[in-house]
């Protein structure tokens, strides 16, 4: 059977004054229907570029993306995107922001049904009492809730989340992760989240795809996450397997992400380089930001 989403030999090149720069090189990934995938890597490694190409917001330089037997060529409502900042229209209320897309995608339905859809999702994300407020009157976390409701309300085939909780404090982040998981389970969506938070990736995903550092970034390692669902954060945090998985991800980010994988599967990994000192790590991250 064909995978639900198939990314093959995906490349992205940007023109620069010094010639073309290949940011993403030969990226391959297959995603099953209903799967939750987390894509992690250092900032600037090209995670978001891959997501933008799946969303159809950035052109593919080489290779291709097939979503349920159709090649991705442009953006469309079959892929719902949640951005880091929720990008709500400030002169519309939360409800009107959600209705904007709902009115387009469900144009054959009655006004009542469309309103019901928007109200349903806004209430499920916890904005039941605040849905008629404008973004300016909502906290950062509430705005992001609205962004999630907007994406789910269009009933997309696939959900793409680009560091959706990066701007929130740790505790609000955990609340929203639960909101997201709840909706994902309810609607049985296929989802891809880009994040650099190891705990977030492990809590949400069925598989964590680790990307090597850019330029020429590609899939480094893939970790299967088999914790039972629905996931219980407290149980997870006490599970020794959780910490083993966490260590594998941290180890990849700290030590192995600089290497492109050798083509042959499971070849001996190259010797890890000397661990960068604090300041070198800092300046390295600044240079790539």
């Amino acid at each position: 059977m064909r995978p639900f989403l198939e990314i093959s030999q995906l490349h992205k090149t940007f023109p620069t004054p010094k010639g073309p720069l290949t940011v993403v090189e030969d990226f391959n990934l297959k995603i099953r229907k209903g799967e939750f995938i987390a894509l992690i890597g250092h900032s600037g490694c090209g995670k978001s570029t891959v997501l933008s190409m799946i969303a159809g917001l950035a052109d593919v330089s080489q290779g291709g993306i097939i979503l349920s037997s159709k090649e991705v060529t442009a953006a469309g409502p079959d892929r719902g995107v949640v951005f880091q900042s929720p990008c709500l229209l400030p002169w519309f209320t939360a409800f009107e922001n959600v209705m904007l897309g709902v009115n387009q995608v469900y144009y054959t339905a009655s006004k009542l049904e469309r309103t019901q859809i928007a109200e349903y999702y806004l209430t499920v994300v916890g904005l039941g009492e605040a849905m008629h407020k404008r973004p300016g009157e909502l906290s950062q976390g509430m705005r992001q809730r609205c962004g999630i409701a907007r994406a789910f309300a269009l009933s997309p085939k696939m959900l793409l989340l680009d560091e959706p909780f990066g701007m929130l404090d740790n505790l609000t982040k955990m609340e929203l992760q639960d909101v997201l998981l709840d909706l994902w389970q309810r609607d049985q969506k296929t989802a891809l989240i880009v994040t650099h938070d190891v705990d977030e990736a492990l809590y949400l995903a069925d598989r964590v795809v680790m990307m090597t550092d850019g330029p020429n970034a590609t899939v480094g390692e893939i970790l299967e996450v088999n914790f039972p669902r629905p996931r219980n954060r407290k149980q997870l945090l006490e599970d020794p397997a959780y910490y083993a998985a966490r260590e594998q991800l941290i180890g990849f980010l700290e030590e192995r992400s600089h290497h492109r994988p050798v083509r042959t599967a499971h070849a001996a990994p190259p010797a890890p380089p000397a661990k960068p000192t604090g300041l070198r790590k800092l300046f390295g991250s600044l240079a790539s930001a």
């Binding site: 409502p77 469900y106 054959t108 339905a109 019901q116 859809i117 209430t123 039941g128 009933s155």
Partner: peptide
């Protein structure tokens, strides 16, 4: 969390293909 119990209806309608020409029929 307020225990606001509110009757919610999720209508059973499917999104339309916006790339296809607009149709005038009830929703799928």
């Amino acid at each position: 969390k307020s225990s606001l119990s509110r009757k919610l209806v999720l209508p059973d309608i499917l999104p339309e293909d916006l790339e296809a020409p607009r149709v005038s029929r009830p929703p799928r």
